[in-house]
Design a protein around this nucleic acid. Sequence first.
DNA 1: AGTGTTTACGGCGACCGTAAATATG
DNA 2: CATATTTACGGTCGCCGTAAACACT
Lengths: 96, 96
Amino acid sequence: MSLSQIQYFVAIAEEGTVGKAAARLAISQPPLTRQLRLLEEELGTALFARGPKGMALLPAGERFLVHALRILAEVNAARRTVFCSREPSADPLLSS
Amino acid sequence: MSLSQIQYFVAIAEEGTVGKAAARLAISQPPLTRQLRLLEEELGTALFARGPKGMALLPAGERFLVHALRILAEVNAARRTVFCSREPSADPLLSS
DNA sequence: AGTGTTTACGGCGACCGTAAATATG
DNA sequence: CATATTTACGGTCGCCGTAAACACT
């Protein structure tokens, strides 16, 4: 499991179709489908039900989504927590 | 930032030296040092103070560690939450 | 029909390992 | 002195893109 796969999963869950998620992520559909399949295989469970109208979260997917969002939120929090402790203007890219 | 980098950081923080962390992670020192450097560069801040006795967490590193542990815990929770929802004996590897 | 899935292929980048030299404190 | 860091090299693996065929509802 990688952070990319988690982001991909969240995008599909929020967009409702693989096509829209792929557009939002700026990647093509086959790699996105592949990564979702790899994630589901690693977890040993399907996360979505596939239908002609798009992807619908299964119960396992809904529970997984809760944790996925927490993980991404924690990653952002981790970034912020060190960002706020930088030496003022220590980074030339930020002082311009 | 990748989950591997987070695991590497936690291992160094807990072991106290890059050498012991590398042994625990079953990788060699240069890749581990590289990944830590890449993480610190991405964050824009050093996380450890380097000394002859090993690695000491800086304040930014201590705060980052809190989030790092939460991330890894959430990942495990995400795994469990779908693991417990499998179809009974659906996976042949588990029914043997 | 419209969506997702799969295959095949190729290319690019990431990561690792080893080995050795170089800081740092 | 013991530790970490860096360099250089090479090999392997992962991920992506494209294109096309296939499957499902």
